[in-house]
Amino acid sequence: MEIMKLIPTGKDYLWGGTRLRDEYDKKIDLTPLAETWECSVHPDGPSCVANGTYKEKTLEEVLKIHPEYIGTKVKNGKLPVLVKFIDAKKDLSVQVHPDDVYAQEHESDNGKTEMWYVINADEGAHLIYGFQHKVTEEILRKAVETGTLDKHLQKVEVHKGDTYFVPAGTVHGIGKGILVAEIQESSNVTYRVYDYDRVDRNGKKRELHFDKAVQVMDMNIAPDVSQKPRIVKYYSGCSRELLCRCKYFETERIQVTKGFTFSVMDTSFQVLMCLNGYGEVQTMDAEQKPMCFRKGETLFLPAGLGRCFIVGETELLKIRC
């Protein structure tokens, strides 16, 4: 059983920038480089293995050979999460994602509940999260047609270290100048409500999906998105902080100054996403060499790997189901 370093798939969406290549050393020849799908078995952007027995295989291929690597908590044998870096040089579209029931019936895909951890944000950067007041389909249709949707949307100023949980059905949009780590259901279903009348490299406006969007969105007053105090647990050489726990995934922020010990049980895989610094993961298996990692790299730890120890100076997101 081996720790796998992952090679992501890149996406060149028109709103992206160059930070993932410039600051995170992503060797992906795309401009812009809007997203990297770090840990993914989705057919629209699979990640591959960079090392060991399964080098150059996709993660999906490995998990078909070893479904036990996902863990006993997952009943359908499919990796339930997709983990990304997102660089928004420009505003993303105003959009919404369906829940599982709607997506499986209409798109043959999962729904998309997600969370964002803000790695960095320009001063004054904001995101869209829900509506300022209750709206109707008629109000929204007119607003999209007249370019006045903005007055109905709740805008939230964001800062480095903020966390946002975005349940399926929440109208949202990441604003320009924000770099985030996104943890989501394994899905690629997005319904665009409004795209600022932009055109792609071929001079065509991107497709909107208003009719589907209004079937799945929550049109009630905006939810509270104020940053609640989070509990940070301090240990000798590290700290850990629970960012989000939902039915699909659990995400912790781990700050390592010397060392961090944890266990990967047979109930769930774990994903380590390095936001800053460097380190290595050691296991109890004497035959397995320590796995080194650095800023921008993502590791997949198979369920049942056992006791692990991280040494180094690093900031990580640790994800499991």
Rank of each mutant, 00 (worst) to 15 (best):
G259M: 02
K176C: 12
Q215L: 13
R240L: 11
P223A: 12
M115I: 13
K5N: 06
D100L: 08
T146R: 12
T314Q: 05
G169S: 10
R230W: 12
D12T: 03
R245W: 00
K89L: 12
C274G: 05
V74Y: 10
A181Y: 00
L14Q: 08
W116V: 09
K78E: 12
M4G: 01
E23H: 13
N188P: 13
T146F: 04
D218I: 06
D25V: 05
D87L: 08
H172W: 01
V232T: 15
T9Y: 06
H126C: 14
E35W: 14
Y13R: 09
G52F: 01
L20W: 09
T146L: 09
C274T: 15
K295C: 01
G52R: 09
A168M: 12
L140N: 09
Q270N: 07
M291Y: 04
V83F: 01
A286E: 10
T298L: 10
Y102A: 07
K57M: 15
F210S: 08
P67F: 07
C238F: 05
D162F: 05
C321L: 12
R198I: 11
F165Q: 15
K11E: 04
S263P: 02
K212R: 14
P290A: 06
K228W: 02
I128V: 15
L242H: 03
F269W: 08
A50F: 01
Q104I: 03
A143N: 12
T298R: 12
Y117M: 13
A121Y: 00
R307A: 13
T136P: 09
F249L: 04
G306D: 04
L243Q: 06
L92Q: 07
E297F: 09
D162T: 11
E68H: 12
E107T: 05
I174F: 08
V62S: 03
G10F: 08
S263R: 13
N188M: 10
Y117E: 11
T283D: 04
A168F: 02
G203P: 09
I310Q: 07
N110Q: 14
M4H: 06
V193Y: 01
P8Q: 07
K160S: 13
D150C: 10
L30F: 01
S93P: 10
G177M: 11
G177H: 09
D195A: 08
K26I: 08
I139G: 01
G130M: 02
K75Q: 15
M284P: 01
T283Y: 05
L92V: 09
K134D: 14
P43N: 06
E60D: 14
L179D: 02
V216G: 11
K151Y: 05
G147H: 12
T113D: 08
H152T: 08
L14G: 03
I3W: 01
P229N: 07
H159P: 07
T298C: 15
